[in-house]
Design a protein around this nucleic acid. Structure first.
Lengths: 163, 163
DNA sequence: GGAAATTTGATATATTATAACATTTCCGGA
DNA sequence: TCCGGAAATGTTATAATATATCAAATTTCC
């Protein structure tokens, strides 16, 4: 049997978080970017699960922790994290998720389960190639690709099967 | 030279609109759906150009015409049109555009020019196939694909070249 | 140590979308 | 034809997402 992707099975999620934070620190150091406490905390909150988090969810967590925070606080941190390839925005959900391939040059492809809400980010070079080819055929210069697939993850398919 | 796609060159746009409306009437008749005056008018407004239109832009046009309209008026009409495959929502822009392949079973792929704002909808079966393959490899049941490419259309590339 | 650049704080407001409930219109069957 | 239910529309209010603006603090670097 093929191994299931991380979001779809129990795993030591704290390890995901630690890895993401370590990667973020390394990437910011390499890029001479300042991963300030708020930015780092927002990244950590985003990584609390494999489900995308809304900006106002992040805001609520920050204020619950006693930080004085307003919407711009969160959006600024998210902008920074996006610009450095540490989080992605899921346009179809108006929400944000930690980048699973930070530092690697890639076009994100997101599999979004409409039942459990988990999101898997794939690299899928074949898909990227096909997209670039199609754009090129129209003489279109592609700069940014939004590719989001909504559906059912393996786990939720299995559960629904014996309802 | 390859012929340019419609949105990128001058054309008799009224023909686009007429065709879209005629198609819509036929499709609704076939599906026993009611293309009411407001719904038809919203579709026509959406088709005024090949640039996506925001819901509140549509609303403004309706009120300018003297129609008593509120946000739900527009969103309901747009929901109806989406459900019958007559318009698409562009998630990355929070805006709506007329479907260029109404009635045909397809996964939309949108080329969005960040300079002129025009959008070209492609069918790109190769891309769809690659996406389905990638999803299948993860045992993911794909139901809805959002594929939006931002970049520069042929015309805007040419214009910017001799700035 | 101090000027410039970056980051943060704080308030206000813009933009996009939906909830809830009353009213009207449409359409098929008695 | 008219009536009853379904579908569509009107209306008001509000939720959810995102940005503008300007002041204050912090960091960087010479």
């Amino acid at each position: 049997m093929a191994s299931q992707a991380l979001p779809y099975r129990p795993h030591n999620h704290q390890a995901c978080v630690s890895q993401a934070l370590a990667d973020a620190r390394a990437i910011c150091r390499a890029q001479n970017a300042r991963l300030t406490p708020t930015r780092e905390r927002v990244l950590e909150l985003i990584w609390q699960s494999h489900k995308p988090l809304g900006a106002y969810d992040v805001l609520a967590e920050l204020t619950a922790e006693g930080q004085s925070a307003a919407p711009p606080t969160v959006y600024r941190a998210l902008d920074f994290l996006q610009q450095h390839g540490l989080v992605h925005r899921i346009a179809s959900l108006n929400a944000f998720i930690g980048c699973a391939h930070a530092g690697e040059n890639h076009t994100g492809m997101f599999l979004i389960c409409r039942s459990c809400g988990n999101v898997l980010e794939l690299k899928a070079p074949g898909v990227s190639g096909a997209i670039e080819g199609a754009a090129k055929a129209e003489h279109f210069k592609a700069e940014d690709v939004t590719l989001e697939i909504a559906g059912l993850c393996p786990r939720c398919q299995a559960e629904n099967r014996h309802d």
